[in-house]
């Protein structure tokens, strides 16, 4: 298996290329919405060798480094829906998860009874924090379910819903973009929402 190529980069400017950021964000989204294993393995091949390098430096031994990498990527797999593309890049998100896990691992190692855990200090995996529109647990689940069901909508309806609810366009803008009458946009929206609601009800 060919994974990880030693970079020659010697701490010069290390900014990640835009296309890579986009690509990784796409994989994260696919994991969040569809539990896509292929996308996860792409994330894994990109990040595991990097996290391993970080972990070896931080933890100093192979076993703990491996634990840190595993915990970090397990969180990525299990909590991909908490990644918010508006808040930062995939590599920042994944790095902050690793930093937090490292903090908790070292804390446990010192065997202290410190009550402070990493999520208090760095709310990386917290439900959307501090911001006014705090989303309840129920709402989160619904969003999650909707994400999965969304994929099963007819393509025409999905495009409309995507433009309105994800890209935040108005119905008129969607009509202009797709070159269809406003009335069609409205009826597709209504049908799609109706269908989603039916599917959600069935789910319960």
């Amino acid at each position: 298996m060919l994974v990880g190529i030693q970079l020659e980069d010697r701490q010069t400017r290390t900014s990640v290329p835009f296309e890579v950021v986009e690509e990784m964000a796409g994989y994260l989204q696919a994991v969040a919405l569809r539990r896509c294993q292929r996308s996860f393995s792409k994330l894994f091949s990109h990040f595991a060798p990097r996290l391993r390098s970080y972990a070896l430096k931080q933890m100093g031994n192979e076993a703990q480094a491996m634990e840190l990498v595993q915990e970090t990527l397990a969180n990525v797999w299990q909590k991909a829906h908490l990644f918010d593309v508006d808040k930062g890049t995939p590599s920042t998100w994944i790095f902050t998860i690793a930093r937090n896990i490292r903090f908790d691992m070292l804390r446990k190692q010192r065997n202290r009874k410190e009550d402070i855990c990493s999520e208090d200090l760095w709310p990386v995996l917290c439900e959307q924090t501090a911001s006014p529109g705090e989303i309840s647990l129920d709402h989160q689940m619904t969003l999650q379910q909707v994400g999965v069901l969304f994929e099963s909508l007819p393509e025409k309806q999905r495009l409309v819903i995507e433009a309105i609810y994800i890209e935040g366009k108005s119905q008129q803008e969607v009509a202009d973009d797709l070159e269809i009458p406003l009335g069609t946009v409205k009826s597709r929206t209504r049908l799609a929402l109706q269908r989603l609601k039916e599917m959600l009800d069935q789910d319960d």
Binding site: V3, I5, L7, P49, R50, L56, I94
Partner: peptide
């Protein structure tokens, strides 16, 4: 910091 810390790779 994320860019810097995740720049190097150790093969798996």
């Amino acid at each position: 910091l994320a860019d810097k810390m995740l720049a190097n790779q150790v093969p798996l």
